[in-house]
Simulated scan of single mutants.
Amino acid sequence: MGNADLRQLAALSDVTWDEVADSVVAVDAHNWLYRYLTTTVKWTNDAVYTTSEGAEVANLVGVVQGLPKFFEHDLMPVFVFDGGVTELKEAEVSERRAKRERAEKRRAEAEERGDAIEAARLEARTQRLTDTILGTTRDLLAILDVPVVDAPAEGEAQAAYMARRGDADYAGSEDYDTLLFGAPHTLRQLTSKGTPELMDLDATLDRHGISLEGLIDVAILCGTDFNPGVDGVGPKTALRAITDHGDLWGAIEAEGWQVPNADRVRDLFRDPPVTDDYTVDTDIDPDVAAAREFVIEQWEVDADEVARGFERIEESLVQTGLDRWT
């Protein structure tokens, strides 16, 4: 289901930072990191984050600039990293790869004609989370003592599971699948300026008079990352079909729709691969000096580009302290 589709159904409200302070957020790490990565690449000279050996680590700029937002507002992030790609998502992954390849071709053409602005815009679209990017991100988080959880599959599913269990107060993602995976509350806009946006599962279900299973069925008809959906069926039509016919199977039979892998996608959202093998240790002790050395000395990121980010981390630790988490 496209983000715009599910957004039409989700119960969303703006909240203040004070309202969500002193909370733990299970953050979909790949989603969070990719947004900072693409923003950095789009607006920053690549010399800032390219090592002498040619490795690009724009992610380190993004992490240093993004983490202070949590600390400054008394939020403890727990970054949940994706595991293996779910088989049902292979088509989506292939399409994303094809889009990157098309963007790369257009970027090269823009460079040839001297259009630096268009080249930079398209360069952001070609980014992917490489082993180097994921590895250096995890190393930096370890130095800063920020908790990390490894999901067996989808990070969003694991984050939602942690929120359901009460090990986190919120899931954190800019996407909407945490709703389908059953996260009671999701914080969005954690990578944006301004205040967060709260997505409320119970309020969403109450608004439409359906169960979580019904919402999942609606999403499957519209299309998700795991299935293409039915042509021409949007959220209003899908919601009406599920309401009128009871469930996904009733809607498919009544309308004569073809929904490949509907049962597998339904099962995935209802019972996704998750793990209990994690610890959320909020008694953290960030080594900012070591983190600064790691980013600037070891990975040769321009010191000026991350100076303010590290200053904000240090200031936030002094102003808010960490003893509240112990």
Rank of each mutant, 00 (worst) to 15 (best):
F81K: 00
V233E: 08
L190Y: 04
G250P: 10
A120Q: 11
D231C: 01
A307T: 12
G114A: 08
A108D: 14
V306T: 06
F70A: 01
F70K: 00
D281G: 00
D276K: 03
T40R: 01
E19Q: 15
G155M: 07
S316T: 00
R97A: 14
D217Q: 05
Y34G: 03
L129G: 13
A29N: 04
D323E: 14
E87D: 14
L221I: 06
V148M: 15
K69R: 15
Y170Q: 07
V306E: 02
T39P: 00
D244F: 00
V61C: 08
T50F: 13
I242L: 12
A91P: 00
G84D: 12
D150N: 14
A29Y: 00
E19A: 15
A159D: 04
L317A: 03
I296Y: 01
D277W: 04
E305Q: 04
D18N: 08
V230N: 01
N31G: 08
E255N: 15
D46R: 07
R308Y: 08
V288N: 10
A151L: 00
R107C: 07
L37M: 10
A168S: 11
V41D: 06
P260H: 09
E255D: 08
D263S: 13
R312D: 00
V295T: 08
F70Y: 14
W299E: 04
T132Y: 11
D5F: 10
L134P: 02
G246V: 03
A10I: 09
V61E: 09
E255I: 11
E95M: 11
R107S: 03
E297C: 01
L198M: 13
D74N: 09
R125Q: 14
P273N: 09
A289V: 12
A55I: 14
T130V: 10
D283I: 03
R292Y: 11
A262N: 09
T326R: 15
D115Y: 06
G256M: 00
R292M: 03
